[in-house]
Design a protein around this nucleic acid. Structure first.
Length: 156
DNA sequence: GCCAACGTTGGC
DNA sequence: GCCAACGTTGGC
């Protein structure tokens, strides 16, 4: 199943992922149960679109894939981590992480504005009012539409 | 910085 | 179990 994950580029951008060793990183710090449950459904090889949020030009900017399925997020046990959760123990972890590897940057980023004006994408979870999920599934049709926008020659 | 929307917490 | 208070997200 295809997925979309959000990240704040000031915190960790798609460029950071491309620059990481093996273009791979642990996707840690998801602290929402619904998002965590989606992480648990991710399978090796699944396509993951990376979206930049909380920025001047929110947009889908790159493609990654799942290279390690869910495992207990080590940050939850680390008292020095901003993602520390005092209620989590190694015997009873609450949060999971996956590892993502960059595939490539999109030829053209697909802005939030462009997503909103694409008829085929109106049902995307990302566009739903009040949506705050940082990990969400995409349909194959949505993935196809987004990739077409990313490859189109027309300026937006 | 503002503010709407949402999730979580904790008293009762 | 209810719900008010609070914190966070994220577009603008």
């Amino acid at each position: 199943m295809p997925w979309l994950v959000k990240t704040e580029p000031e915190d960790f951008s798609f460029a950071d992922l491309l620059a990481a060793p093996d273009m791979t990183t642990a996707w840690e710090g998801v602290r929402n149960y619904q998002a965590r449950n989606f992480l648990r459904e991710m399978q090796n090889g699944d396509v993951v679109l990376v979206y930049h949020s909380s920025t001047a030009h929110p947009a889908i900017v790159g493609i990654a894939r799942v290279v390690r399925e869910c495992y207990p997020d080590p940050a939850q046990f680390d008292a020095r981590s901003p993602y520390f959760d005092p209620k989590a123990t190694p015997d009873a972890p609450r949060w999971d992480a996956v590892e993502l590897q960059a595939v490539r940057a999109l030829p053209r980023t697909v802005t939030l504005q462009a997503l909103r004006t694409e008829a085929a994408l109106q049902e995307m979870r990302l566009l739903k009012r009040g949506n705050r999920l940082s990990v969400m599934p995409l349909s194959e049709a949505e993935l196809g539409s987004i990739l077409r926008l990313a490859e189109s020659e027309e300026p937006r």
